[in-house]
C-alpha cells in the first residue's frame, strides 16, 4: 500500500537519512555511531523509499547496486587491513595521518568499509524481500 503522503515524505526523508548517516559515520570514532549504525540508517532511508514506492524505483535511484556495494565495502575493509601489512606491521595495524587537524587512519577506512557493506547487505535483503510484496500489489 502506498499513499501520496508516503511518497512525498519518502522523497525528502531519504536524503535526510543518508546525510545523517554520513554525519554519524564520520563522528563514529568519537561519538555514538560508527559504520554499522550509519549503514543501517542509510539503508533504512532506502527501505522506506522502497516501501513508499517500489523496489525497482528505489534501486534505480542508487548509483551503485547493492551487490557490488557489498563487495566494495568488504574490499575497503580488507584493504584497510592490508595497508598495515604494507607498512610492515601485522595485519590491521592502524596507520594514522593527520591532515589539517583531522586525524585519519585505517580504522576509519575500515569503518567506511563496514558502512558500505551494511548498506549493500541491507538493500540486497530488502530488495529481494520487498520485490515479492510488490508483486502482490
Amino acid at each position: 500500500m502506498t499513499t501520496q503522503i508516503l511518497r512525498i515524505s519518502s522523497k525528502y526523508l531519504k536524503p535526510a537519512f543518508v546525510v545523517l548517516s554520513l554525519v554519524i559515520l564520520y563522528r563514529g570514532h568519537n561519538e555514538p555511531g560508527g559504520g554499522f549504525i550509519s549503514g543501517l540508517l542509510a539503508a533504512s532511508g532506502y527501505v522506506f523509499y522502497m516501501l513508499a514506492w517500489n523496489v525497482e524505483t528505489a534501486l534505480k535511484k542508487m548509483w551503485i547496486q547493492p551487490v557490488p556495494l557489498m563487495a566494495i565495502g568488504l574490499l575497503l575493509a580488507l584493504a584497510s587491513g592490508i595497508i598495515g601489512v604494507a607498512a610492515g606491521e601485522p595485519f590491521m595495524s592502524g596507520q594514522w595521518i593527520t591532515v589539517l587537524n583531522i586525524t585519519l587512519g585505517t580504522p576509519l577506512l575500515f569503518d567506511v568499509g563496514v558502512y558500505f557493506t551494511v548498506i549493500g547487505v541491507m538493500l540486497t535483503i530488502m530488495s529481494v524481500i520487498l520485490e515479492k510484496v510488490d508483486q502482490w500489489d
Partner: peptide, 17 residues
Amino acid sequence: ALIVFIGSVAVAKFLKR
C-alpha cells in the same frame, strides 16, 4: 525518532494486504 515509524509503516502495509 528517525527510524521507528518505518516499522509502523511496514506493519500497516502488511495489515492492508
